[in-house]
């Protein structure tokens, strides 16, 4: 029941590396598209923050993020320290999805992590703003995500960024 695409694609701008604006709160960091060399740090950060190791999942997404430089429909961004170490501070993954059960195209954020020691330093805020910019460039006007009701930290983060409950209800069923 999912219909994708349908809209004429416009050429995407070249890949970019965006410095977090001067004067922005938090330490100096760069936000850029993911590269193959980020894979190990992404796997390590995700494993640390979720307690689950899913190497092949991240390998596939990083490959996809590296390939999709000509389009904004799949976006995998990383925040790295703006120094010689260029160490990973966080990442965000999003995708433009279209016409799912009649929903107009929108940007879905479906993965995000920030180095625990760097929380409350606006890393997540900058990553979300950067992915929103990519979604706008792709022509969508709405951003969505899905968070478990009891997953307090991401829930408070997305709410704090102004996200409100949308017009859809998530439904599920046990498959026996």
């Amino acid at each position: 029941m999912t219909k994708r695409g349908g809209k004429k694609r416009t050429p995407a701008p070249p890949p970019r590396t965006a410095a977090i604006p001067a004067g922005a709160p938090g330490r100096a960091r760069l936000i850029r598209r993911v590269r193959r060399g980020d894979l190990e740090a992404i796997i390590a950060l995700d494993t640390r923050t979720t307690g689950l190791s899913k190497d092949s999942h991240w390998r596939e997404l990083v490959e996809r993020g590296g390939r999709s430089r000509r389009e904004n429909e799949f976006v995998f961004l990383v925040a790295v320290s703006d120094d010689a170490s260029a160490s990973l501070s966080g990442f965000i993954v999003g995708e433009v999805r279209a016409w799912e059960f009649g929903s107009a195209p929108c940007g879905w954020v479906y993965a995000m992590a920030v180095e625990p020691a760097l929380r409350e330093q606006h890393v997540g805020e900058h990553l979300l703003a950067a992915v929103a910019t990519e979604f706008r460039r792709a022509g969508v006007k709405k951003m969505r995500t899905m968070v478990a009701k009891d997953n307090r930290l991401p829930m408070l983060f997305f709410r704090g960024e102004g996200m409100m409950a949308g017009p859809y209800i998530q439904l599920e069923k046990d498959l026996e």
Binding site: K149, D150, R152, M155, L156, R159, G160, G162, A165
Partner: peptide
């Protein structure tokens, strides 16, 4: 009930201040 608790539990005082300012 679950939805009510989840919504109220997801809005911090900081978030409500921002909503009120908006």
């Amino acid at each position: 009930d679950d939805a009510t608790r989840a919504t109220l539990g997801s809005i911090t005082l900081d978030t409500l201040c921002a909503l009120a300012a908006r």
